[in-house]
Design a protein around this nucleic acid. Sequence first.
DNA 1: GAGTTTGAAACT
DNA 2: CAGTTTCAAACTC
Length: 616
Amino acid sequence: MGEGGGEGEFPPKKDGVEEESGFPAKTPARQLDFTGASDGHSLSKATTAAPTVVTTEVKTTIVIPSVPSSATATPTMTTTPLPPPAVGISQVRPTVLMGTPNPPSQAQILNAPIRIPKLESPKAKPRPVVEARDGTPQKKKQCNCKHSRCLKLYCECFASGTYCDGCNCVNCFNNVENEPARRDAVEATLERNPNAFRPKIAASPHGVQNKRPEEIGEVVLLGKHNKGCHCKKSGCLKKYCECFQANILCSENCKCLDCKNFEGSEERLALFHGDHSNHMTYLQLAANAAITGAVGSSGFAPPPAPKRRKSQEIMFNQANKDPSTHRLAHFPQGNSGRTSGGPTSGASPSPVSRPGGNASPATSKIVYRSLLADIIQPPDVKALCSVLVTSAGEAAKTVTDKRNETENRMEDQTETSLASSAQDHSQGNKDAADVEMVEADENQADKSGAEDASKGKPLSPATLALMCDEQDTIFMVAAASPNGSVDPGGYGANSQGQSEIYAEQERVVLTRFRDCLSRLISYAELKESKCSALARMQLQSPATATATATVAVKTENGIQQMPPMANGASRTTTQPTLNKPQPIQLTTTANTSNATNTANSHQLHKPPALSEKKDL
DNA sequence: GAGTTTGAAACT
DNA sequence: CAGTTTCAAACTC
């Protein structure tokens, strides 16, 4: 078991010679030293070998469930210097690949006694991975390592940076008690491969976000395997394949044979069509993975529940048996000579595309879309920013004017002026105290966070991911006061006036932004209710509803069409009227073709006029 | 649950 | 860096 660390001979092996610690005498890239002498010795090498950080922007229209607040709960494992958030395998992973301003170094990631999935009695029974109906694992996965002492990447716990807890492993060293050994193992692993503990799945610029839904045909999950898989026999359609397991398509990084895990692959489609509802859930989970840039044994997203595997495989096998769909050729890989992956006979419908390749033909697959998908376009954001900046400027001006007036009035009253000065001082102190309190709170709330980081203690990536906002705050404070003291005026302006201006600006900006969000929420609610209404109509009269599939919603801006799908699942999107959610007028329009619908939807992709957004 | 298959990791 | 071995998960029966 995961708690059985240390005792018993290891390995139970043929290799013969063993070190006194029981480790095989084989000399790996760097022999591990489990004598414990390494306790506390630094991972200086690893520490300084902070690998380059891939900064990738990921966008998705798939709604990402928020991380439960419990994720930041502080475990009570007192021997752990860094209380890690409890992270299930489905947990959103750190944003190392996501452009986090200061991603943790590799050593930071690893030096941390990272995540202890759940604190239980050491004698706790092994817990199977429990999956909810939606396929979301509720417990961390448990390894079953026997020969690796859970100190090699073979061990999923070790590879994912978690301690074994409640695992079924034998002779486990991946625990608090064997931290020195574990550290050495980490060091050795890093020496072999500095990126060993980095997320295997990097976010990919390719994906759905740049395509119209009708062009997509299927959801192409973002991200690609950094190293690529090397599958030979699984067709990359089994969980043996790391790409498949992460629910991403194989990429040019892969060296797989007879790959079927590419966009447009019939086998792959068959697999997913076999369990569409489950797939939808899976998509969200995988989107998490893409978003966070990490899934799998280094955070792999949970796989789809294998409940329907049989039926899926039937379909898959049928597809395989069909000679028309059998592919001998490797599908195209941007630069590795993969051919188009097209079918070897004319029976298969269409050429396929690879991530980053040509668009695939449309299929009838429903694409899950957020209710707010496409509502916010880049120009919208720019417009909003402009509005906010303008507002901030106006606020500053107002405050300054007011202040000047007041000062003029007060000019002759020396006594009052002195009092004011004193107040400035005390106010300044108060501000300083406030800032310090904020800082203290943050440090306390996440002791393992910035404070530890500043001390050189590592952060688990998940923790870092969760505290990025706090980091920003801390950064602001630090920037205001590089020497650690806090500028009483705030932001280094050293005057209450500035402080007031900033406060007012902040108030105005936040207020405006809040209003904007409120409107978005209102719009989403409106849209949802419209979708629901439509869905009900479809239920009542499916034929009609499906045939017409058009709901005209009259707004002050004209008519908007709603796609014939409920709750965000759609292939078309409507353009919001952000400033004023209108009462719904549902009108079914007979004889409205889908083509019309699509054409309109294209038009509707245009962002709202800037004037509208000013109202935000 | 035991045995087999598979592919990543470790090693040569 | 290619080939081989080891390992543990995935899968099958």
